[in-house]
């Protein structure tokens, strides 16, 4: 498993811009496409360029954004978390039921919901780190279990959410929804953690090579478990946000988030084999996906074609994506 490095690209030390562009081709591409799409849509549709719609796009990006942040940690450390969508659903439904049927204060319910997410993530992390289970398949298994739990909680719309929780979605600070501002801060915080904290650097190191990381004295298992826990918390937060948006616990909520978040990371230039990629690209991909689904709605593309279109985009994106053969 030790990293063999052969034939490095000789790059002139001076030419930093070029070097950066070459390394971050996926990032440049994703923002280019997003910008082009936004410009074209703005010209074609006055509704799209409306400030209210733009803030709506940003607000729509929050659910996927939250899940992608968690997924990013897991993928950078060399794993995959397939359970995020169902974790969001279980927490969303659970919180909805608890808010309706117990007298607990909403804030406490929400905190408990986030804790439940952490617990789910911790379990995934333990399975992967301590038992050597293959991440994709084992989280697929927990996804199945969580799906069953969601059905157990409710198979129909459930729970009336109090105003105070709906406010999470609706509250505004100036013209911007508070949630968008909080989300932006979360992205910033994640960016800082990945770039400048010891845990962030360890995440990259473990994803790059667990054996080298171990040799360097890093606690590989702890890093792995922590990444899955973060992912679980993020998924729980996404579930709670979805609940605040719809006002009622929807048993079909959070459908497909696991794959959308993996795809967001992949087309944002993050290596699915771990250890390489940036948050900036993943953010671009999240925005792109939000813009596309907004345009679907604006142009009233039939729901039956939306999935197909999205699917084709995903296939093209992963086909363009080139796996690094280092690993």
């Amino acid at each position: 498993m030790s990293q063999t490095i052969t034939a490095p690209a000789p790059v002139a030390a001076g030419n930093r811009t070029l070097r950066w562009t070459r390394r971050n081709a996926a990032v440049v591409l994703i923002y280019g496409i997003t910008a082009a799409l936004v410009i074209v849509a703005s010209i074609m549709s006055p509704t799209f360029r409306d400030v209210a719609n733009i803030t709506d796009v940003l607000r729509q990006s929050i659910v996927l954004g939250l899940v992608t942040i968690g997924q990013l940690f897991v993928i950078l450390a060399g794993g995959t978390d397939m359970s995020v969508g169902m974790a969001a659903r279980v927490v969303g439904l659970g919180v909805a039921v608890a808010l309706t049927s117990t007298m607990l204060p909403p804030i406490l319910v929400i905190v408990l919901g986030l804790l439940a997410g952490a617990l789910i993530g911790l379990l995934n992390g333990l399975l992967v780190a301590r038992f050597g289970a293959q991440p994709f398949i084992v989280t697929l298994g927990t996804m199945g279990v969580l799906y069953g739990l969601a059905l157990a909680i409710s198979d129909g719309p459930t729970g009336m959410v109090p105003r105070s929780v709906v406010a999470i979605y609706e509250m505004k600070i100036g013209p911007l929804p508070a949630s968008v501002i909080v989300m932006a801060m979360l992205w910033l915080a994640t960016w800082w953690v990945l770039r400048s904290s010891r845990f962030g650097r360890a995440t990259y190191a473990v994803g790059g090579s667990p054996s080298v990381s171990r040799l360097a004295g890093l606690n590989v298992n702890r890093v792995l478990i922590l990444t899955y826990t973060i992912s679980g918390v993020c998924a729980a937060a996404a579930g709670i946000f979805l609940l605040a948006r719809s006002g009622v616990g929807n048993p079909n909520m959070a459908l497909g988030l696991e794959f959308q978040s993996i795809v967001a990371a992949a087309i944002g230039g993050v290596s699915l084999y771990g250890g390489r990629g940036s948050l900036v690209g993943a953010l671009g991909a999240v925005l792109l996906i939000s813009v596309i689904s907004n345009l679907f709605d604006l142009f009233q593309i039939s729901a039956y074609f939306q999935d197909l279109t999205l699917g084709v985009i995903v296939v093209l994106a992963v086909a363009i994506y080139r796996a690094d053969k280092n690993k």
């Binding site: 794959f259 074609f305 999935d307 197909l308 699917g311 995903v314 992963v318 080139r322 796996a323 053969k325």
Partner: peptide
């Protein structure tokens, strides 16, 4: 293209389901 099998086949899952719905 060297895409990990789970990603490739999951993408096809979405395409095939989408194609069926369409």
């Amino acid at each position: 293209r060297g895409v990990p099998p789970f990603v490739a086949t999951f993408a096809l899952l979405i395409v095939v389901d989408g194609a069926r719905l369409a």
